[in-house]
């Protein structure tokens, strides 16, 4: 019996992996998992989301979870396409060859790992519409993926209504 105990536990652990989507159940398992996660996150297990609540609210999560969710967005951006995301972080901009990129940086709890989440304001906007460099900001935007001319890499960003961008 003692020797079977680890085996029984393993069976239980394997059964636990069957909860939700199987990691290898489709060609894009992460997509299915992340989609269901986004829907589950917005549903909050029992109550349906209110109309103005974001699908993914990173401001209600701990630092480790925020970092992990943003990492998942980089691993499988297509799964988050079209979802509203609310995030708080430190604002930075970076000049590119053709345009300027705007980011909110989020860190894990130890602050040794950071991820940048790009965003862009809807409509006509200039640098004066964005926060000051290094300032803390909160924004709610729609997750979208895009490619740039001559670059096959799939990027992602949040498209934000200027009214949904505010200092934290």
């Amino acid at each position: 019996m003692k020797q079977l105990l680890p085996g029984l536990f393993l069976a239980g652990a394997l059964a636990l992996t069957g909860c939700g989507s199987s990691p290898a159940s489709s060609a894009a398992p992460g997509s299915q998992d992340a989609e269901s996660a986004g829907q589950d996150a917005s549903s909050n297990a029992q109550t349906p989301p209110k109309e103005n609540e974001p699908d993914v609210d990173l401001t209600q999560m701990g630092a480790n979870m925020v970092y992990a969710v943003v990492c998942q967005m980089t691993l499988d951006p297509a799964a988050y396409e079209g979802q509203t995301v609310k995030v708080a972080g430190e604002y930075y901009s970076a000049p590119g060859p053709q345009k300027t990129y705007y980011f909110l940086y989020v860190s894990d709890a130890a602050a040794c790992c950071s991820q940048g989440l790009e965003f862009v304001l809807e409509g006509e906007s200039g640098p004066e519409d964005y926060p000051k460099e290094g300032a803390q900001a909160v924004l709610t935007g729609t997750f979208e993926t895009y490619t740039e001319e001559g670059d096959p890499t799939l990027y992602f960003r949040l498209r934000v209504n200027p009214e949904d961008l505010s200092p934290s």
């Binding site: 939700g20 989507s21 990691p23 998992d33 992340a34 269901s36 996660a37 589950d40 996150a41 549903s43 909050n44 297990a45 209600q60 999560m61 979870m65 992990a68 969710v69 998942q72």
Partner: peptide, 8 residues
């Protein structure tokens, strides 16, 4: 419950 709704 919210956290465990995420597969990762």
């Amino acid at each position: 419950a919210l956290y465990f709704s995420y597969p990762f």
